Amino acid sequence: MDLTFLTDYINLVVLGICLCIGYVVKTSLDFIPNKYIPLIMLLAGTSINAVMNLGNVNAAVILGGMISGLASTGLYEAMRNLLDKGGKKED
């Protein structure tokens, strides 16, 4: 099953904003467990994309926000693994 068509829905502005929000949640808000960060990014991405397209909210806008929010968590993990020094992950 090829899911590459989902990349057409990624909004780079939403992805960048969610990446920043996720970083702040991960590093500053210790009372939020890591398992909830993807859910928070999904909701944030959906909300941000809906506000950006306020007059024209449809299923594609909702999907774009969801995909962009979730992609931000994957991008964070990829960047963390690339920048990982000595094979030790920081928590």
Rank of each mutant, 00 (worst) to 15 (best):
I37F: 06
P33S: 00
V61H: 06
G22C: 02
D30E: 11
T7Q: 08
C20H: 10
S72P: 08
C18T: 01
T73A: 11
L15G: 05
I10S: 07
L63R: 10
D8T: 10
A60M: 07
V14L: 01
L39S: 08
Y23N: 12
N58P: 02
K89T: 15
G55R: 15
A78H: 01
D84E: 13
G87P: 05
N81K: 13
G45L: 07
L63Q: 09
S47L: 15
C20S: 15
A59L: 11
G69N: 03
L6Y: 03
N11V: 00
G74L: 01
D8G: 13
L12M: 08
L12N: 07
C20M: 11
S47G: 12
C18P: 01
D2H: 08
Y36V: 10
I21R: 02
M79Y: 12
N53A: 02
M41E: 10
V25E: 01
G45Q: 00
P33H: 03
F5R: 03
Y9N: 09
E90T: 12
V61K: 06
D30C: 09
I17V: 05
D91E: 13
F5Y: 05
F31V: 13
I67Y: 04
L15W: 04
N58A: 00
F5N: 07
M52H: 09
A78C: 04
M52F: 15
G65K: 03
V61Y: 06
Y76F: 12
E90W: 04
A44V: 00
A44L: 03
N11T: 02
I17D: 00
M1E: 07
K26C: 12
K88Q: 14
A44D: 00
N49S: 08
V14F: 02
L15R: 02
L19N: 05
P33W: 00
T7L: 09
T4H: 09
K35D: 15
K26V: 08
L82I: 10
N56A: 12
V57M: 03
L63H: 10
N58K: 04
K35L: 15
L54W: 14
L75W: 01
I67L: 05
L82A: 15
A60K: 07
M1W: 06
C20V: 11
V61A: 08
M52I: 11
I37S: 07
M52S: 14
